[in-house]
Amino acid sequence: MNYLIRRLVTFPLVMFGVSVLVFVAIRLVPGDSITAMLGTEAGLLTPEQRQSLAVYFGLDQGWFSQYWRWIGGVFSGNLGVSVTYGKPVLTVILERFPLTLELAVLAMLIALGVGLPLGVFAATRNEKRSDLAVRIFAMIGQSTPSFVIGLLIIYVLSAGFGILPSMGEFVPFSQDPLGNLSQLILPAMTLGLSFTASVTRISRSAVLDVLGDDYVRTARSKGAPKARVIWRHALPNALIPVVTLSGVEFGYLLGGAVLVEQIFALPGLGRLVLDAILQRDYALVQGSVLFVALNFMVVNLLVDLTYVLLDPRIRLGGRS
């Protein structure tokens, strides 16, 4: 079967599995959700009140019908109501999403803008000192957890320059572009650094791989300038692994960089999920986790579609 078609067919299947997993996971949490929802006040409920709440939330029904009720709601954009925020879950998620999206885009711009040229440079200087320096940088960058990078950045800025990153209320880009960027640039750099490291590594090895290929040698022997050989002939063919990696990383970032958002006190999607879990706001956990998984899968699907554009061989079903 054609690779793309198979990919598109399995997409809803996997999404169904994801929704079941999320649904079941939440129901496996010890304790009933009414107590979790009301906290200590749950003790004040009469059995009748408890029963009517259960009926209201559909908790008196079996799991199967509860699932259908929930998934039916998902399709009409109704993910339930968040207890902590007193708002529909979807509204809460969509309020947080722009920040996460912007952060992910900035981090990717940094990673591709720095990592790709660095990787190509290192590949052309194979085994020389500058190559080694780039590789050491990339290896260290890849081995440092992003939250550690974030903490170190905050420390250096606050101790060395007396600057504290602006935290607190998120300013949308449309309202105050400068304020918005000054708020996001440090977290974006934090996330971008480890992302840059992986882009550098993968583009270096991908370019090295194709530099030995026949068509590159042909281009060189025709007398094409070195820069042209690299940027015109080698790079486009080396892009596939870079696209895969960037796509997967971007998907991760869309899921919210929980730790970095936590350090920089940014109200993004990752922290929303974390808070929802800590607050035991189950409708919100269920909705936001599903939303993140959907994002992640859509990005991965787009990555696969990009392959097809980059490499026509895949279209013919050569890839299994």
Binding site: T10, V14, M15, G17, V18, L21, V22, A25, I26, L28, V29, G251, Y252, G255, G256, V258, L259, G270, V273, L274, I277, V285, V289, V292, A293, F296, M297
Partner: peptide, 19 residues
């Protein structure tokens, strides 16, 4: 396994810990 891989790793771990 496809279903499990559809989650960002840290999120899956968080979900597991929530349970």
């Amino acid at each position: 396994m496809d279903v499990l891989l559809a989650f960002p790793a840290i999120l899956l771990a968080l979900l597991f810990i929530a349970v």
